[in-house]
Design a protein around this nucleic acid. Structure first.
Length: 285
DNA sequence: AATGAGCGCAACCGCTGTTTC
DNA sequence: GGAAACAGCGGTTGCGCTCAT
């Protein structure tokens, strides 16, 4: 048997939160900290589902939320990250301190989509609308995950514009071969880049793997962290030029932001409880 | 002033991977 | 090892507000 149900759904409030409920939740989390959402409502004296409490705290009550209008810089960053990640709002939010995934999702749907359409850009494919509609009938969001091949190779393609260069990066993982032995990231991008300031290099590997590979290739041993190569730390430009940023606790979700050898590719490290490097986070719908 | 359309956003729903029993 | 709950995510809904008619 599993566990008992998290809450009695028949006896929980729904709809908008009252000020009193907010105050109770804030007071409880201030004294006990986040986590254990299952037992929180009862302990805090709230007639709410734990899931609802978590959502309320994360999206509205957390003290580190920025609130207010999005800046033009944030707009552009969201557009760039969306072109890279698709509708992975939590990953995008991880790069915008003080913003929540729900907030960014809403902002995208209400403002940025329209903004891109007005610019003549398809908000789904990030390509000119005419080209986008004629070039891809299926017009799936990019990037997309191609099926796993028999050789355990996974290809992730970024866009499929008419003229593309193809970049490939192969990474080996010390995991069971029947699970996955090698990832090949094939990045195709237009020769004329839309975002010349955005480094799209994908570098995913375990820390020792990068060192080994660089040794084999006789490259310099001063690689830059992924966030540096992406050009940002906590949403700001990063100039550290080091392998590790050691910026801790900068994430809006309180994630350890320590970077090492590109291991924390777009926030993958935070999910690492298995040997597959939070692979789920790379899948694109 | 009434009302209907459009918009923005908080909250809910349903799904998936992980964890616990 | 399997079943069930947890935690988290993305999609969707519904309510309240604004504005045009």
């Amino acid at each position: 048997m599993g566990r008992s149900p998290c809450c009695e759904k028949a006896h929980t409030n729904k709809g908008a939160w009252t000020k009193e409920e907010d105050e109770r939740l804030i007071a409880y989390i201030k004294s006990h900290g986040e986590g254990c959402w299952r037992s929180l409502p009862k302990a805090a004296g709230l007639l709410r589902c734990g899931k609802s409490c978590r959502l309320r705290w994360i999206n509205y009550l957390r003290p580190d939320l920025k609130r207010g209008n999005f800046t033009d810089e944030e707009d552009e960053l969201i557009i760039k990250l969306h072109s890279l990640l698709g509708n992975k709002w939590s990953l995008i939010a991880g790069r915008l301190p003080g913003r929540t995934d729900n907030e960014i999702k809403n902002y995208w749907n209400t403002h940025i989509r329209r903004k891109l359409i007005n610019r003549g850009i398809d908000p789904t494919t990030h390509r000119p609308i005419q080209e986008s509609s004629s070039a891809s009938q299926d017009s799936k969001p990019i990037p997309q995950l191609e099926p796993v091949t028999s050789s355990n190779t996974i290809n992730i393609s970024f866009a499929s514009a008419p003229k593309v260069e193809t970049f490939q990066e192969s990474i080996t993982f010390p995991v069971k071969p029947e699970k996955i032995s090698m990832l090949t990231f094939k990045e195709e991008r237009p020769v004329e880049e839309k975002f010349p300031d955005l480094n799209l290099e994908l570098r995913i590997s375990l820390p020792d793997e990068v060192d080994r590979r660089q040794g084999l290739l006789g490259k310099s041993t001063t690689p830059r962290c992924f966030k540096c190569s992406l050009g940002m730390v906590n949403g700001m430009e990063c100039r550290c030029g080091r392998m590790r940023c050691d910026v801790v606790g900068g994430s809006s979700k309180g994630t350890d932001m320590t970077m090492s050898n590109g291991f924390d590719f777009l926030g993958l490290a935070k999910k690492e409880t298995t040997s597959l490097m939070g692979f789920r986070s790379l899948e694109m719908k």
